[in-house]
Design a binder for these strands. Sequence first.
DNA 1: ATATAATGTAAAGTATTATATACATTTGTA
DNA 2: TACAAATGTATATAATACTTTACATTATAT
Lengths: 65, 65
Amino acid sequence: MKNLIKVERARHDLTQADLAEKLGVSRQTIHAIENNKFNPSVTLAIKMARFFKVTVEYLFDIEEA
Amino acid sequence: MKNLIKVERARHDLTQADLAEKLGVSRQTIHAIENNKFNPSVTLAIKMARFFKVTVEYLFDIEEA
DNA sequence: ATATAATGTAAAGTATTATATACATTTGTA
DNA sequence: TACAAATGTATATAATACTTTACATTATAT
């Protein structure tokens, strides 16, 4: 696992569709990011992190430490 | 100004070309990001922030507070 | 003032992000 | 089991990040 989106989503009890709507993107985008199909823009990353009240580094970079 | 790349670059006494090389991207990419021509990927954003030893939020989101 | 380094700009091309739609598969629950 | 919701997958398309090359402008130093 390379990011904690699924975990944070579970913590907030949101479906992919829910989160997509909250962030103003498509469900496929959430799915793809969650499964490392691609690398979102820093803007979307910051939006997500802010939504979950965590840092970008925490949300997207937990592997490296 | 929407990001602090130019400032951090100055603090580290690096040219755009220097920074580009350190991060493995083109000088034009640095220039474009610095001047808000586009929105980098979260991966590049994290690389940059890590390079400067600051957070992504600090580097890219100082306007909002 | 002139040379040089640094930055700005532009255009064409490639790669990747993101959308929309549709359908298949998995998971949870009555 | 059967139904519904959630997630996974596929394909086509649009938008944009990023590269390369090349040249113009601005700043810095001699």
